[in-house]
Write a protein that binds this DNA or RNA. Structure first.
Lengths: 193, 193
DNA sequence: GTATGCTCTTGACCTATGTCAAGATTTTTC
DNA sequence: GAAAAATCTTGACATAGGTCAAGAGCATAC
């Protein structure tokens, strides 16, 4: 439903009725069922996508056939493959639904036009991009410095919302550890309390 | 020297003489000697910084006292701590010079004004930000999926320029492996050719 | 509501990479 | 340009975390 996105916008920026309408006119509502792909490796990603309901993951598959969860997103997050979007090259990633989900999509050209025409909107988008970048930097730091247990603890601190909704094997993959190790870490963490 | 930055701008965007001047008026030239700090943990980072000459690194120090190289930059790269810049909080990172270097700094407020007043400049900046984000995503993928050898190989492919200028122990840290492991990987990689 | 698959846990064992230490090289300093 | 300091290499050994396998616990589907 578009309503969720409207509410999200309201919390972030002030828009005139006209601007608000312009944005809505570009929006495409998309539903995906659990396990359904939003993007498959090899396809070109052409949208800016807001999650209004549910939960999705971005993952890559390496030569050994192992999956690596690159990103996770729930309500009020944005998702997509900016590399494919920007370069026009086929994506290296898959995005699929962890739960039945709903998204608000914008064709990227329309989206860029909205950013140009509505400065408040453009600024919001660039804010989001900045925060995504900062989050990646922090994730890199965690990947470089943390033990398996520290990775899990800091994940819980930041993203406790995810912890209950996402299967453990995906969390393990997101953290760069094996599901077995995550299971053991969880056991030892819970014992300590 | 500011000239290098002017050339960089020329390759990216077209500016009027007036716009060009406005930008130059905000620029602060800063020289740092090898090993000198540009930013120390605990300080607040307040600039947008372009490297016109030399080479710098961003690193964090963990509780065990070990350094982790979060980022590297050479001529024509931007460097800084966007998290501290955006939040106003003290930085978790250190930035220091790997070689004698020269930077073009902009106080962030001036920089934002330039982005607003000169759309071409603003667009360039947001392009750069996007590419930084994409690069981080790829680095996360590498950290999650690659063996030590694969990390080093892909580093060489992307950043062969660095390979000669940056001490191996820093490259090792950037890749999240020990200097000894990197030394062994290099030996085995060179044998294969 | 019971059968079929997933996901999670646990144990036994393995391996890639880390750690420590010593020597060899290279770089810096005066 | 010699001495001191940093960096890199190599060997021996340690270990965090991976892999494999089996069983338990949960969902999902018909």
């Amino acid at each position: 439903m578009y309503e969720i996105f409207r509410q999200y916008l309201d919390t972030k920026i002030k828009l005139t009725a006209d601007e608000s309408l312009k944005i809505q006119e570009c929006a495409i509502i998309k539903k995906v069922r659990k396990h359904q792909y939003l993007l498959q490796e090899g396809d070109v990603w052409k949208y800016d996508a807001f999650i209004s309901k549910g939960c999705l993951r971005t993952y890559a598959i390496d030569e050994r056939g192992d999956e690596h969860v690159i990103g996770l997103g729930i309500e009020n997050w944005w998702i997509g493959d900016r590399e494919s979007l920007l370069s026009g090259n086929p994506s290296k990633f898959n995005i699929d639904a962890v739960e039945d989900s709903e998204l608000v999509l914008f064709a990227h050209q329309n989206f860029e036009k909205l950013c140009m025409d509505i400065p408040a909107f453009g600024n919001m988008v660039s804010q989001i991009l900045q925060r995504s970048f900062i989050a990646s930097q922090n994730r890199i730091q965690a990947a470089l410095s943390y033990t398996a247990e520290e990775k899990y603890r800091s994940f819980l601190e930041k993203y406790s919302v995810f912890a209950t909704r996402i299967p453990q094997n995906m969390i393990a993959s997101y953290l760069g550890i094996s599901p077995e190790t995550l299971s053991r870490v969880r056991k030892s963490v819970s014992k300590k309390h």
